[in-house]
Design a protein around this nucleic acid. Structure first.
Lengths: 343, 343
DNA sequence: TTGAAAGCGCTAACAC
DNA sequence: GTGTTAGCGCTTTCAA
């Protein structure tokens, strides 16, 4: 294998010269091979090989205004839920031979802006965005400027922007309802910031369930905001909670996602071993693959991540008024040990 | 927010006309604002705002040959190990205001080719690639044509291509050595295909450890190839193993990664409950965040994923001969319950 | 400090 | 079937 040449990449001109044809013919070989005489095409293909010619996609895109790249911006690439969504997206894209540019905002408005901008400047075919705390303003602007957008994990209230989401309010109610049914009358909600729509909706759902049980949400539900929506955040929050109660664990806890729940479990075990862990009824959210494999297998609210990604990508590509533009999936409760030891 | 106009995006020409200046001046405002008279600049900026002008990055890249995008191709985006690596890459890139285009080959040569091609045609600044079963051939070609490449998770044997990897052979030896020390003299290795370099090296390491213990690897080690390097693959393989042995679990198992180990645990629990699970000593690889939270907390070989990504990105960006071009990190064994119940 | 004009590499008319 | 040429939107000389 030769060393990397610092020479300029070969261009259609070079290929044309090498093959003794015009650039138009080279372009034809590249894009409409059937229109070129066999013998000419062979010569051009030989020249392409000889020069290791790789077409400049940037120039092509500029000229032909055809793109095959879709951008996706998720909240947190380290959260398996979002990688499942991404996988669903890719599954759909690859059907049309399109490719995915994946990025993670980490709910940092600055990063979100940067990536939206990058996608827009790059002229992607469209983008799939999970908006963060900063709201949908930035996305709306992108959309207003003419780029196709589908909101992910966010019910769209914006005319012209389709969306794919899960009914988070129903999910919150599912989680809390389960704990109430099991006789718990005090709930802690380990939630993310209220700037994130999912967190607000799940909290509302929790309160719905409490009201439905004939109780007063303000008395029953104690909401604690985690420092981050990952294991670390759940761990920290649970430590604070236990410290507040002189070493006792809260009776029943709803966590905003499985990672937070896993962190909360970790804290409980660290502070008081299995005994403390089992004194709490815990429900997570997302039903990650690994949630069933935990020391205390997690009761969790399942969201159809892969399907959501697939559907969102389909809406973007099909851009078809006959397809439903606002899809809401229903979550589902999966009951395991973490919520059934206690009580 | 206005509906998406199907109108063409505004161009520098439009901005120039609106502001009553030439396109050159608009370009200067965009790229060298200090060289433009305050008052002119203000007028141009106003025009930009009025027209919602977003520069066409494709045209810019074509003309100025400056890129800020780096491509990364990992084996499996759903494996937290690789998302950690990706995160390390991003951390380094964002220092230079560069952005990451992330893709997953799923060890499918076809997908690998597609993404390498996409990156190359797009003219990325460079790429970070975890090669799959298909080997490094495709990457070498890309490199030979002049694109900067850093191999990830693969010790480079290719002149001019830097690499960042972990010593997998040492890791395999660490895992097996631990089990041997605990008195096991039959090991099952749940491995991925030998077309993947990591798998071969880890197997060699396992055999090293056996030899070091004065035993014969051919007698001690039984290697089983999983159908996929994820929980599903581990689950399937373990079921086959147990069936082969009339319902008994193997004494000691080294898994090619934590996901496989988690799947293996799942199978054991499903087949024979905690009793069967605890009759096996199990070691994983990667030390995922959640591995410590499992029903049977996983003994695992830790690889510094984040640091690897960071380092690889640094090498790519710095492109500096004074920086070591072949970095090999050393893995580390983390002992937990999964390997210490049994025996 | 600004404007005019060339050209990045490609595709798509259109002419032959 | 193939060649010629304009031009995608931008940056970058060079001149004024």
């Amino acid at each position: 294998m030769a060393a990397p040449t610092s020479r300029r990449r070969a261009s259609v001109m070079d290929v044309a010269r090498e093959a003794g044809v015009s650039v138009g013919t080279v372009s034809n070989v590249l894009n409409r091979p059937d229109v070129v005489k066999d013998e000419t095409r062979a010569r051009v293909e030989q020249a392409i090989a000889a020069l290791s010619f790789v077409p400049n996609g940037v120039a092509r895109q500029l000229r032909s205004r055809t793109v095959t790249t879709v951008g996706a911006l998720v909240l947190d690439i380290r959260n398996p839920y979002f990688t499942d969504v991404a996988r669903g997206i890719e599954d759909r894209l690859s059907l049309d031979d399109h490719t995915l540019m994946l990025a993670s905002s980490d709910d940092d408005p600055e990063r979100e802006r940067r990536y939206l901008r990058l996608f827009e400047e790059h002229g992607v075919l469209g983008m799939l965005v999970v908006p963060g705390s900063a709201g949908t303003r930035a996305v709306e602007e992108v959309h207003a400027r003419g780029t196709r957008v589908v909101l992910l994990d966010h019910p769209s209230s914006i005319p012209g922007i389709p969306s794919v989401a899960v009914d988070d309010r129903a999910g919150g109610a599912l989680a809390a309802g389960h704990l109430l049914e099991r006789g718990h009358d005090r709930l802690v909600l380990l939630n993310g910031p209220h700037t994130i729509r999912q967190c607000v909706d799940r909290q509302r759902g929790v309160r719905d369930a409490v009201e439905r049980a004939g109780l007063d949400p303000d008395e029953v539900v104690r909401e604690v905001t985690v420092s981050g929506m990952d294991a670390r955040g759940g761990d920290d929050a649970m430590r604070r909670l236990v410290a507040d109660r002189d070493g006792a664990a809260p009776e029943a806890v709803v966590c905003v996602n499985d990672l937070v729940a896993i962190g909360a479990q970790r804290a409980l075990r660290a502070l008081g071993g299995t005994a403390l862990l089992r004194s709490t009824a815990l429900v997570g959210y997302d039903d990650l693959d690994i949630s069933s494999e935990l020391a205390s297998p997690l009761t969790s609210v399942r969201q159809p991540a892969l399907e959501m990604g697939y559907r969102a990508a389909a809406i973007l590509l099909e851009d078809d008024r006959s397809v439903e533009q606002h899809v809401v999936f229903q979550p589902e409760l999966v009951v395991r040990d973490s919520s059934t030891y206690a009580g």
